[in-house]
């Protein structure tokens, strides 16, 4: 599994596609976390399921944690859960690439 992250619209999805032709690309993983929470799935369970079901996938997510603490409890919970799930995936990923202005930095 490879992980591509970055702030909104930083080009992580394009990088993931261009560097991994033919691979299964899972986009908007941060939104998958939100859906999982709504279905009662914990971030730990979600990360484990992704690793089990798609061990060779390329996962793309937005970084959403670098802001003022949200007022709504469900937004705070989502933010924490995205962090938790991505920490778990990053630890298991072969590579982690962070996009800034379309430029990929291989941080792992």
């Amino acid at each position: 599994m490879k992980l591509y992250i970055g702030g909104a619209y930083q080009g992580q999805e394009e990088l993931a596609r261009s560097e991994n032709p033919g691979a299964l690309i899972v986009t908007n993983f941060h939104e998958t976390v939100r859906e999982a929470l709504l279905c009662g799935e914990t971030p730990d369970a979600l990360a484990a399921r992704v690793l089990r079901e798609h061990p060779d996938a390329v996962i793309v997510a937005d970084e959403i944690g670098a802001g003022i603490v949200p007022l709504a409890a469900e937004d705070r919970l989502w933010r924490e859960a995205v962090g938790r799930a991505l920490c778990l995936l990053a630890q298991r990923a072969q590579t982690v690439t962070r996009a800034v202005c379309g430029i990929g930095m291989r941080i792992k």
Partner: peptide, 11 residues
């Protein structure tokens, strides 16, 4: 430093 839930404490 880092965003929320990014693993700062664990590190």
């Amino acid at each position: 430093t880092g965003g929320s839930g990014c693993g700062k404490s664990a590190y």
